Simulated assay, not measured.
Amino acid sequence: LLQGMVLCGYTPTPPHRDIHKTALGATETVDWQYLPTTLDAVQQLQAAGYAVMAVEQAAQSIMLDAFTPPANQPLALVFGNEVSGVDAAVMQLVNGCIEIPQSGMKHSLNISVSAGIVVWDIFAKLKK
Rank of each mutant, 00 (worst) to 15 (best):
A41R: 00
A41G: 07
V42T: 05
V42M: 02
Q43I: 08
Q43Y: 11
Q43K: 13
Q44L: 06
Q44K: 09
Q46R: 10
G49C: 04
G49N: 03
Y50Q: 05
A51N: 05
V52Q: 06
V52E: 04
M53Q: 01
A54Q: 00
V55P: 12
E56M: 01
E56G: 03
Q57D: 06
A58G: 10
A58S: 14
A59V: 07
A59K: 13
Q60W: 09
S61K: 01
S61L: 02
S61R: 02
I62K: 01
I62H: 00
M63E: 07
M63A: 13
M63D: 05
M63W: 01
D65C: 04
F67D: 07
F67W: 12
F67N: 11
F67S: 09
F67E: 04
T68M: 13
P69T: 06
P69K: 04
P69Y: 06
P69H: 09
P70L: 04
N72E: 15
Q73A: 10
P74D: 07
P74Q: 07
A76N: 08
L77C: 10
V78C: 14
V78S: 10
V78A: 10
F79G: 12
G80D: 04
N81P: 15
E82Y: 11
V83M: 08
V83I: 07
G85M: 03
V86E: 00
D87G: 14
V90G: 13
V90S: 08
M91D: 08
M91Q: 15
M91S: 12
Q92R: 15
Q92K: 15
L93V: 03
L93E: 09
L93W: 00
N95W: 11
N95F: 11
G96S: 12
G96V: 08
G96Q: 10
C97G: 08
C97R: 00
E99G: 06
E99W: 01
I100F: 11
P101Q: 02
P101L: 01
Q102S: 15
Q102Y: 08
Q102W: 09
S103D: 09
G104Y: 02
G104T: 01
G104C: 05
M105H: 13
K106Y: 12
K106Q: 09
H107G: 14
S108H: 13
S108M: 12
S108E: 08
L109S: 01
L109R: 00
V113I: 13
V113G: 11
S114T: 06
G116P: 14
G116S: 12
G116A: 08
I117R: 03
I117M: 07
I117N: 03
V118A: 02
V118H: 02
V119G: 09
V119I: 15
V119M: 13
W120R: 09
W120A: 08
D121N: 09
D121M: 01
I122D: 01
I122M: 03
F123K: 03
A124F: 09
K125H: 12
L126A: 00
L126V: 02
L126F: 00
K127S: 14
